[in-house]
Nucleic acid binder design. Structure first.
Lengths: 176, 176
DNA sequence: TTGATTGCAAAGCATTTGCATGCTA
DNA sequence: TAGCATGCAAATGCTTTGCAATCAA
């Protein structure tokens, strides 16, 4: 994305956060500003822990708790969205003006590939309607083996042994 | 499902479990047999805790740990599948000779509606192929408001306040 | 000044592990 | 008999909460 456009979006996101804070009768603080700032600089998915360490690099005095609480606030404000990849941690991804997407997760290396299919979205809405269900959010994960890991793994042992994804590495350069 | 057919399936599942046990050099025990038996009698989704209490009703001496460990075994054997509905607990659903399905989860009452769409399945496989990704399992959750709760909720407050599903009640009689 | 916010430590939860005892094969 | 299984208690890992001190409005 062009740098100008990005800056513009950041500005909007900061405004949204400030409005949310105001609307709920909360207070703007240096910590919250910094955490939002750092979050905006991230790409893809960050866990609370990830963000904590990133924030630490800018200000050692900020506590774990504050990062947790602020991430919840960001989610409430509609700037972030909580996602889980099956390793027990909560990850946050950008929500504002970011196209919704789904994830393929490699159970070998933990890589996360983002994808988007308007056809799947549409079918989901149709299924929901069929049940009188009003969808607010959805979330599709495909677990499997990514292209690289397919080359490396010859035997199917690791798959047969009840593979449970233990995701560490998050990253994908496949999606657009 | 007809009762005869069910009995037949239970028998197959017990055999599968025994084979899995043997293949891995493990041992058949009364506890494992009972836990499998109780699991087979359940419908829909059970948490480890749910199953623990059900098992307790038949044998007070069985510990939490054994239920946990046995559920993992069942998943390994292909009889159960782990699913999560966003409340931090792990649920188990039947896997053997049960058609794959996805879930709609009501963020108001926690009801879980099962559904299946061959079209969505197909599109998922196509998306995976496009990325050279070999899918082993997938998992689609649609969060929203079920038909009943839509009637009751007039204001949109509960939705706007960053609703996080805290699912307790699991059950659905909508799906076939 | 008032009451929200912070950071620490402690508490909560679901799940896992260590270990002595018990039991299958 | 060997060594896997069990059940308890303790440990773990992530997240939340209580609270006194601090700070925004």
């Amino acid at each position: 994305m062009a740098n100008e456009k990005k800056k513009e979006r950041f500005k909007e996101e900061k405004e949204i956060f400030e409005n949310h804070i105001k609307k709920k009768g909360l207070r703007r603080t240096a910590q919250r500003d910094l955490i939002l700032e750092v979050f905006l600089q991230t790409e893809e998915h960050v866990s609370s822990e990830d963000l904590y360490w990133l924030v630490q690099q800018k200000d050692k005095s900020i506590g774990y708790t504050t990062v947790y609480r602020t991430l919840k606030l960001l989610a409430e404000a509609g700037l972030a969205r909580e996602v889980s990849f099956g390793d027990g941690k909560t990850y946050y991804e950008h929500h504002y003006k970011h196209q919704h997407h789904d994830h393929m997760i490699c159970t070998e290396c933990g890589k996360v590939i983002e994808f988007f299919s308007p056809e799947i979205e549409q079918l989901q809405d149709e299924m929901a309607e069929k049940h009188g269900f009003k969808p607010t959010y959805h979330n599709l994960r495909i677990l499997g083996i990514c292209a690289e890991c397919q080359k490396e793994v010859s035997s199917a042992d690791s798959v047969a042994s009840g593979a449970q994804p233990r995701i560490r590495v998050i990253g994908s350069r496949f999606s657009k």
